[in-house]
Amino acid sequence: MNNLFFDATKEVFSLMLDLDNISYDQETLHTMLNDNESIGIKIGIVGDYKGSISYIFSKEAMLEMVKIMSGMDVSEVDDFVKSAVSEVANIISGKAMTSLSENEIVCDILPPVIYIGETVNDGCRNKSSCSFIKTDIGNIELDMELQKNK
């Protein structure tokens, strides 16, 4: 399952941001986000599996993503930036759901919820469900909490 969201992230980052140097590090947990400037975007999942996928973006990654998409100089993680990045997380999740459906697993995603502050750092402590993605524009953590729906 982790690979599903990693693959979807790779696809979207390549397509929308022309970023192809993306690597996956299952071993590194929560080393990145001890600052107050990271943002978490949580997307609920319903259907054959239930739970959520959370994307935690560094400030650097968020600003670069929006600079690439808009062609504009962006220096602050404001509502515009958060919303654009949130939509990218939504797109990634949608693609992951499409991949699941190709394996006859039917799931749907709920609207993204943005969270900030201390709760961001709690998400990935010592959890095997977390993965760490390195990109040329900064790092992302994925925190996946999914279980099969009975």
């Binding site: 929308m16 808009s70 654009a84 990045v85 939509e87 797109i91």
Partner: peptide
């Protein structure tokens, strides 16, 4: 409006490319 603009930007780019 700031939120709308952000979502619209990302949505449009993905829609055209995908």
């Amino acid at each position: 409006m700031q939120q709308f603009a952000g979502k619209l930007l990302a949505w449009l780019i993905n829609h055209v490319l995908s």
